[in-house]
């Protein structure tokens, strides 16, 4: 009972601290690259939260009220479920399911459903377009991510995330399967629609799926996006960078360091790169990324042969 409560606290803490870290790192990256002088990158997210909190909520004509209110909550819940799968050390894993990798693979399509629902239920054209556009891309992300994740579970001979971490004791998957991590990170940017892959909430759609929401609903949605990015980084760190494995420092410290490393990488990339046209990225995803994911899988299979 105490252990369950502790695990719950860790996941909730990770949600809060992780999202705050995302906001700080993103603000810092923006300040460095955009050469704007923000007052203080550490306080800025708090000001932003406060301003979102105080803005009155918006509504549209005849939205699907249930779905509209629920979608951000669902998205955040899926991010939290993803964070719960992250193993911190051999002895502390909030949820150690024997099919953890598959559950993570299931969270991605479920997140897609939540994003679609968020855009569709507002009953307005820009959110609808964002949702529509996202789903057409989401299917390709899911496939790529599936293959890459099967790739990491091959050397582990298990679908358990802790077993995947343990299988990297000699060699991290990022070296053993060099294609895996880049592909996984592209999927991560896609599913949390960040930076160059922000197709669902992009500026050319007036913020797409969230263009009709404001105030606390919007805050929750942004919170979910940041949390999803953290969950992706943490799972990526476990599946490719050896999770808790590392010298000197205790396991959880390594998990945090590696997660932060991936987060910084993703956020800087997000600030640096322009948005492609969705049409072009769709072609890229099916013609280049999916075959690369196949290659990764074959590579992993050949490498895992005894």
């Amino acid at each position: 009972m105490v252990e369950t409560l502790f695990a719950l606290l860790v996941v909730l803490g990770m949600l809060a601290v992780g999202s705050y870290a995302v906001a700080v790192i993103d603000g810092a990256a923006g300040a460095v690259l955009g050469r704007t002088a923000h007052s203080n990158v550490f306080l800025l997210p708090i000001y932003q939260c406060a301003s979102f909190w105080l803005v009155p909520a918006n509504t549209t004509e005849a939205p699907d009220a249930w779905a509209w209110r629920l979608a951000p909550v669902l998205y955040l819940t899926f991010a939290a479920m993803g964070l719960a799968l992250v193993p911190w050390s051999p002895s502390f894993i909030p949820v150690d399911l024997t099919t953890g990798i598959v559950l993570w693979g299931a969270l991605e399509p479920l997140a897609t459903v939540a994003i679609f629902l968020h855009g569709w239920s507002a009953n307005s054209h820009f959110p609808l377009l964002g949702a529509y556009r996202y789903v057409s891309l989401g299917l390709s992300y899911i496939l790529v991510s599936m293959f890459v994740l099967i790739g990491v579970s091959l050397p582990a001979e298990s679908l358990q995330i802790s077993a995947v971490v343990e299988s990297q004791r000699e060699l991290w998957n990022v070296i053993r399967q060099p294609l895996g991590l880049p592909l996984f990170l592209i999927v991560g940017l896609g599913i949390s629609f960040w930076g160059p892959l922000n197709f669902a909430d992009s500026s050319d759609l007036a913020e797409g799926t969230s263009s009709e929401s404001s105030g606390r609903a919007k805050l929750l949605w942004q919170f979910g996006r940041a949390a999803m990015l953290v969950a992706f980084s943490a799972i990526g760190a476990s599946a490719f960078l050896g999770g808790w494995l590392g010298p000197v420092l205790p396991g959880p410290a390594w998990v945090i360091l590696k997660t932060l490393f991936i987060l910084v990488l993703l956020l800087v990339l997000g600030r640096l790169l322009p948005r492609l046209s969705p049409d072009r990225f769709l072609t890229l995803a099916w013609v280049l990324l999916l075959p690369l994911a196949f290659v990764d899988l074959v590579w992993a299979g050949v490498e895992a042969l005894p």
Binding site: L97, T99, V102, L103, G105, A106, E108, P109, L110, T112, V113, F116, W120, V135, G138, L139, I142
Partner: peptide, 15 residues
């Protein structure tokens, strides 16, 4: 778990 992702994708396509 397989049912989750199979059906999430299927129903998404349906929608």
């Amino acid at each position: 778990v397989a049912l989750f992702f199979m059906m999430a994708v299927e129903m998404m396509v349906m929608a």
